[in-house]
Amino acid sequence: MSTPHWTLRALRVVVPLHVVALLFQAVTAGLLLSEPGGRAAHMASAVVLAVVGVLHLAAALLAWRSGGAPVTYVPPAALLMVATVVVSILGMMHVKTLHVPLGVMMFGTGVFQLTRVGYAWGGRRSERGQTYSRSSGSSSPNFGR
């Protein structure tokens, strides 16, 4: 297998950052409930989350357009970006009954994307997402045999 395209490497850097930002957002939500300055921390981490979300979407689009990654990395990145905007609006409107579950969904989507991009790190998938056998040394697909 050849060296991954630079855009795929960028995606592999940005996706874990996005998951960490999502996790930090949950931590600051706890601070919001327990500390007087928690609201400011939660709002600041939301801005960081939005910036990292834009970087994630841009990296996924660049990786796909350059041929370095499959198009299937783009929809989760786009979903996370749209969800970030929606959850931010719901949070500003104090609609916690939707804000919190959508935030949990965002974290799950981030972890889903991380496992997909991270699976490619182990060399078990090509940049195109096709699984190959390591033991045979051939380029024929390994269908779980």
Rank of each mutant, 00 (worst) to 15 (best):
L17M: 15
G110L: 06
G144Y: 13
A83L: 14
V86R: 07
M92Y: 13
V111L: 14
P36G: 00
L32D: 00
L8H: 01
W6L: 11
A26Q: 03
L23T: 15
S2T: 14
Q130R: 10
L8R: 01
G91H: 03
P4E: 08
V27K: 03
Q113E: 15
Q130I: 13
V47Q: 04
G68F: 09
A63C: 05
A46S: 14
S66H: 02
F24P: 00
P75F: 11
A10Y: 00
A41D: 01
L17G: 11
L62C: 06
V52M: 08
S45V: 02
V95F: 07
S140K: 14
R12G: 15
L11S: 08
E35I: 00
G37S: 01
V74D: 12
S136D: 15
G144A: 15
L22G: 14
S133A: 11
R65F: 03
A120W: 04
R12M: 13
L80N: 09
L55Q: 05
G110V: 10
A60W: 05
P70K: 11
A10P: 02
A83P: 02
L11G: 11
G53S: 13
A78S: 13
S138E: 15
I89A: 14
R124K: 09
G38T: 00
W6Y: 09
P36I: 01
M93T: 10
K96F: 08
G118M: 09
A59G: 07
T131L: 10
A21G: 09
S66Y: 01
F143C: 08
R65Q: 14
G144M: 08
S2H: 12
R128Y: 08
V47E: 07
Y73N: 13
L17R: 01
N142R: 13
H5M: 06
G38I: 00
V15H: 04
G91C: 03
V20F: 12
S138L: 15
L11E: 11
E35F: 00
H99I: 10
V13L: 14
G67A: 03
H42S: 01
E127W: 06
L32I: 00
T84D: 10
H56M: 12
V14G: 02
H56W: 07
Y132W: 13
A120Q: 11
W6Q: 14
R128N: 07
R116C: 06
L22Y: 02
A46N: 07
H56I: 04
T97K: 01
P75S: 12
F24G: 09
V47L: 07
V51C: 06
F107P: 00
S126N: 11
T131N: 01
L23I: 11
L8A: 10
H99F: 02
R65C: 12
V111S: 09
L61W: 04
V74Y: 04
V74L: 12
T97M: 04
L31W: 09
A120R: 10
A60E: 11
A41M: 01
S45E: 02
G30F: 00
G137N: 15
A69Q: 08
